[in-house]
Every structure is written in structure tokens, then in C-alpha cells.
């Protein structure tokens, strides 16, 4: 019988991850879009708002909102490409016939996590310096960044798969992503304010729990629904 079993999930996912990274390294389309957007917004925010124009009591709130706005819109700028480029280039059919759907989702999710992590690692230190944004609980801040990026990458990856066959991909991606990404953004912004005001991790632990729950739900839902989204 010629019906051998499908490829192991992790091996196929890593192959998709490596292929996307290699293709991105050679074209740098998503990387350029993400980093140029992040850099331009950082410079604008630093110039227009700056550390001296904010009252000390307003800084945690305003800086937390601004930081997550930069991260959020950077994600919107580049993360949809993982699936959109497969449909636009005509490679989606080849991938559909070759790779198990969960492996494709996992590979693309890992690519988006890496891209968003790289942009966040670029944005955050510059933002902290430019805005003189003091964080009193770094462990809480780092936990919020990691979990927030996982949530943004997970929801963006799944939404990108949903919109990749549509004609108005850009508009549809924003329309579907924004309501999906508001809950983790609110938790991340609120938690970042706490991290800037309090030294105790426990003060912001509820926001960490919200993000863990969100990431778990989004990842589970994405893997449960992806097969139908990708093959239909």
C-alpha cells in the first residue's frame, strides 16, 4: 500500500519555519516593513511627546499606551505576510498538497513569534531610553512583553490565514484582528502601567494570568479551526 502516514508534525513545522526564514532573509520584505515602521513611530513619538512634556504622574499611563501602540501596529504591518504571500505567489497549493495543516500553522506561528520578538527587542530599549520610561518591576514587564507578543503573533497568524484568500486582504486583516487583539492589548497596557508603578510582581499578576489564558485560548482555537480554514 502506498498510503504512508503523514509527515511528523514537528519536523514539517520546522521545515516551514526554516523555509520562511530563508525566503525572508533573501527578500527582507516583512523585516523592512516591521522595522522601518517601528523606527519611524519611535522617532515621531520621541520628538512629539518626549520625556519632558509629560507630568511624572502621567508617564506610566501614557508611556504604556504608546509602547503597546507601537508594538501593535508593527505587528499589523508585517505579520499577515506569512500566509498572504503564499496565496499571492501561487505557492499555497503546493504547500497544501505537501504539508500537514497543523505543521504549516505551527511553522508560520514560529516565524511570526520570531519576527515580533525581534521588533520588540528593538523597540523596547529605544523606547525606554527615548521616553525615560522607568520600569519598577522588570520581571513583570518582561512577562507581559513575552505573553503579549505570543498573543499578538498567534492571533495575527490565524487571522492572516483567514484573510489570505480574500481580495481586500489589508482591510479585512485589520477589521478581524483589532477586536481579536483588543483584550490582550488592554491587559498588556494595564499590566505595563502597574510594572512602572509597583515593585511587586504580585500587583500585576492578574494581567499575566489574563494573557496566559488568552494565549492558551487563541492557540487552541487556531489549531482546532485551521484545518477547515486552510483546506476549504
Amino acid at each position: 500500500m502506498n498510503a504512508r502516514p503523514p509527515a511528523p508534525l514537528l519536523g514539517a513545522a520546522l521545515a516551514v519555519f526554516r523555509k520562511d526564514l530563508l525566503a525572508e532573509w533573501r527578500t527582507r520584505i516583512a523585516v523592512n516593513a516591521l522595522f522601518l515602521f517601528a523606527f519611524a513611530v519611535l522617532v515621531l513619538v520621541g520628538y512629539a511627546v518626549g520625556p519632558t512634556r509629560l507630568a511624572p504622574e502621567d508617564r506610566p499611563t501614557v508611556n504604556a499606551v504608546l509602547l503597546w501602540i507601537v508594538i501593535f501596529f508593527s505587528a499589523m504591518t508585517g505579520l499577515s505576510r506569512v500566509f498572504v504571500k503564499e496565496e499571492e505567489a501561487g505557492t499555497a497549493s503546493a504547500l497544501r498538497l505537501a504539508a500537514p495543516p497543523p505543521a504549516i500553522l505551527l511553522g508560520k506561528y514560529l516565524v511570526n513569534i520570531l519576527l515580533l520578538s525581534a521588533v520588540t527587542a528593538f523597540i523596547v530599549p529605544l523606547f525606554l531610553v527615548l521616553m525615560s520610561f522607568e520600569i519598577k518591576c522588570p520581571s513583570l514587564f518582561i512577562a507581559l512583553l513575552v505573553l503579549g507578543c505570543l498573543g499578538l503573533a498567534g492571533a495575527s497568524t490565524f487571522t492572516a490565514a483567514l484573510v489570505s484568500k480574500a481580495s481586500a486582504k489589508g482591510a479585512l486583516f485589520a477589521v478581524l484582528s483589532i477586536p481579536l487583539l483588543l483584550p490582550p492589548l488592554i491587559a498588556a497596557v494595564s499590566g505595563t502601567q502597574v510594572a512602572a508603578r509597583e515593585e511587586d510582581f504580585k500587583a500585576g499578576a492578574d494581567f499575566v494570568r489574563v494573557l496566559i489564558a488568552y494565549d492558551g485560548v487563541v492557540t487552541t482555537a487556531a489549531f482546532a479551526l485551521f484545518d477547515a480554514v486552510w483546506r476549504e
Binding site: A23, R26, T91, S93, A94, A98
Partner: peptide, 18 residues
């Protein structure tokens, strides 16, 4: 059983960057 299927078509594309 997609692993049992081979496919060639004019609208099929492979990865141009590779």
C-alpha cells in the same frame, strides 16, 4: 491522503526566493 498525490499545473508556483 495528500502525500499520495503529485500535482503539476500552470497556476502552481514553487518558492521563487529559493
Amino acid at each position: 491522503v495528500p502525500w499520495c498525490i503529485g500535482w503539476v499545473a500552470p497556476d502552481l508556483a514553487l518558492y521563487g526566493e529559493l
